[in-house]
């Protein structure tokens, strides 16, 4: 199983490139099992939503 260190990179790179099938699979499996990385994933998602709405209201 991939480590959190490897998975946090995949979580970020998934926003900027299409991950390969094996990468996507290993990331998903890890996220199901790891609450810390799920929170990291949610942080990156919030960051993206925030920037897309920039400059805010």
């Amino acid at each position: 199983m991939k480590s959190c260190r490897e998975v946090h990179r995949l979580v970020i790179e998934a926003q900027d490139r299409k991950l390969g099938f094996a990468e996507r699979l290993s990331m998903r499996v890890h996220l199901i099992l790891c609450a810390a990385c799920r929170r990291f994933d949610a942080q990156m998602d919030l960051l993206r939503q925030a920037i897309r709405r920039f400059p805010g209201d």
Binding site: S3, C4, R5, A35, A36, C37, R39, F40, Q43, L46
Partner: peptide, 11 residues
């Protein structure tokens, strides 16, 4: 071992 030193917080 590749684990978070400090787990990411809930935003």
């Amino acid at each position: 071992t590749g684990h978070w030193q400090e787990a990411p917080g809930d935003w």
